[in-house]
Design a protein around this nucleic acid. Structure first.
Length: 558
RNA sequence: GCGCCCGUAGCUCAACGGAUAGAGCAUCUGACUACGGAUCAGAAGGUUGCAGGUUCGAGUCCUGCCGGGCGCGCCA
């Protein structure tokens, strides 16, 4: 029996009780779906629901009395072993071992599909994340958003959404000009300008640009007149940096469906069109020589300049056109994953939607807190000047993709997290990813061993044999997976999957310690071995599906 | 000053408004002569920053403080 089936059974019992006049409840008070959860304390049964507590008030009865009514009916449902009313009115349900054990087969047969739901079916979602400026490599903060964003995309897809991963490439404006000037200066052996970029990578790119140009046609771009030289270094530099960023992301197993170039919004005239539309609809006003969007009408804390007094579009102009573009491409939900230093954008992006008469709820902004670099327990301020910037490549080189992704995705984005490179390099066991991966490797090993000794799942399955406490705990954990995934998708919190996997791995290790799958010596193969192998394989399926949602490998051996 | 996030075990972090607040690491004690000990069993460790409030029930919601982070450009 799956939790979904139990939930439906509880609801049916409620409905019956209402129909029979045992509960005086308005039809609207009967919940559409009853929440069934694993109790924290295993003594409280396999599953629990607090529905009686919630219905006590509308029913005008003490909660325990409501619970008794439901319990009486639920106890006779096939597969339910016992129902207890506990505490203030919780319903604690224990399933027949056989009914609970059926889950093992269902999971194995579902395979990679187990955990997928239709919770977000029909939603066309644009998920924008990382979107770092092409003026340098992806740093630690961007790495967090890469891990979280990609995992969130996978979780949303598992919930049935149609997801496009998108990267907004800010290849337009003053920052890029500074980048180009920095490259040119370095190519000429000069220091970077005061407001420029000075990392080693600038030197490398500058050198590459010159070398490539000389190899191509023998013309040194440094000898061009300054405007042309700047343009040469700008376009080549951005392209090289872009390639490097893409490569880092790819090596981190994060590939975007769309790399959107901000510059294209300006060169295509999209920005001009959008500005004209806003002028026509009276959403813009002129003051101090500039054109302003009256975004305060839509919840922003101040109005925003869209066209600067020098006639050039301000950054928001690109945001406006970009959101229009996303909507025109058919997305009904546009999620932005941004760092805490951008939280001021939330109101602005919502206003960008509202200014066009669009529903602000199509824009959803997730603000993630910063990543601190720590060395020996002391926070290190990341600074390009001091050479203390840690990049995505540094992190991967130090701990590997699996450990890096897992460490960054297992915490809520609301929490600031500390990354201590020295610690991660020294004691990688600190990372719970190995606990989870080891559990998967163990399921694989058990499968290999038992099959070598002739245990075949297809020869038998008797779920009533799964009667040990560690077995009901493991089955309950397995059964919880679809709910966890759906909840992670709904709340946009992929870290829940990681925490769930740690608990599942724990349940598996405890079971492994208590129950043996592989026959000993000349022992004959029986349904006990076969049935346990089903449970082993079911666990392996869920661990693999869960790790996949995090973009972390599920090794067969470690 | 205003806005957003955070404050939970020694450390890093969890916990749809639910029952005795949980994991990992660190500390201590046990378990390999048969599935890999990257494991398991157990101990210790907490006034969930403080003070009020909401209700059957608050780490979670509301108000006010205290502490930390990040923002508040005709920069991008």
């Amino acid at each position: 029996m799956t939790p979904e089936e139990l939930s439906a059974a509880v609801r049916a019992c409620l409905q019956e009780a209402v129909d029979a006049g045992e509960l005086a409840l308005p039809a609207s008070a009967v919940p559409q779906s009853v929440r069934v959860e694993r109790p924290r304390n295993r003594d409280h049964g396999d599953w629990a629901t607090s529905v009686a507590l919630q219905l006590a008030k509308p029913a005008g009865l003490p909660p325990r009395q409501v619970a008794e009514v439901v319990a009486g009916r639920l106890a006779s449902v096939a597969g339910v072993k016992s129902v207890d009313v506990a505490g203030p009115g919780f319903l604690n349900v224990t399933l027949d071992a056989a009914a609970a054990g059926e889950l093992a087969r269902a999971v194995v047969e579902a395979g990679p599909a187990f955990g997928r739901t239709g919770a977000l079916a029909g939603r066309k979602v644009n998920l924008e994340f990382v979107s770092a400026n092409p003026t340098g490599p992806v740093h630690l903060g961007g790495t967090r958003w890469a891990a979280v964003g990609d995992s969130l995309a996978r979780v949303l897809q598992a919930a049935g959404a149609d997801v496009t991963r998108e990267y907004y490439f800010n290849d337009h404006g003053a920052q890029i000009d500074r980048f180009a000037r920095s490259l040119l200066a370095r190519a000429n052996g000069q220091d970077a300008p005061e407001d420029g970029y000075g990392g080693d990578y600038i030197e490398e790119i500058a050198t590459t640009i010159v070398t490539d140009a000389l190899a191509a046609d023998g013309r040194d771009p440094r000898n061009l007149p300054e405007p042309e030289a700047l343009e040469a270094f700008r376009s080549r530099g951005v392209a090289l940096m872009f390639d490097e960023v893409k490569k880092s992301l790819h090596d981190f197993r994060v590939d975007f469906d769309v790399y959107f170039h901000e510059d294209s919004l300006h060169s295509s005239g999209a920005v001009a069109t959008v500005v004209q539309q806003l002028k026509d609809s009276g959403r813009l006003f002129e003051a101090d020589g500039a054109w302003w969007l009256r975004s305060t009408e839509f919840g922003d804390d101040k109005d925003r300049v869209v066209i600067k007094s020098d006639g050039n579009p301000a950054y928001v102009a690109g945001d406006l056109a970009y959101l229009r573009d996303k909507r025109a491409r058919g997305f009904d939900l546009c999620i932005y994953l941004l760092g805490a230093d951008h939280h001021g954008y939330v109101a602005r992006l919502k206003a960008a939607a509202a200014a066009f008469g669009d529903d602000p709820d199509v824009v959803e902004v997730l603000i993630g807190q910063m990543v601190n670099l720590v060395r020996d327990g002391v926070p290190v301020r990341m600074s390009k000047r001091a050479g203390t910037v840690v990049t995505m490549e540094d992190l991967v080189e130090a701990v590997g993709v699996d450990a890096a992704r897992y460490a960054l995705v297992r915490s809520s984005v609301d929490s600031q997290i500390d990354v201590d490179l020295d610690l991660l390099v020294k004691r990688t066991n600190d990372n719970p990813v190995f606990y989870v991966q080891y559990a998967h490797a163990r399921t694989s090993g058990v499968g290999r061993n038992s099959r070598d000794l002739g245990v075949r799942t297809e020869d038998g399955f008797d779920p009533s044999l799964l009667d040990h406490a560690t077995e009901s705990a493991l089955l309950a954990a397995i059964g919880d997976f679809p709910r966890v995934v759906a909840q992670a998708a709904e709340l946009r919190e992929p870290h829940r999957v990681a925490r769930y996997l740690e608990a599942l791995a724990g349940s598996y290790h405890k079971w492994y310690d208590e129950r043996r799958v592989t026959p000993m010596g000349e022992e004959a193969v029986t349904d006990v071995h076969r049935t346990r192998l089903w449970l082993n394989d079911a666990t392996r399926t869920v661990l693999a599906n869960g790790l996949d949602l995090l973009g972390v490998g599920a090794p067969d051996r470690m």
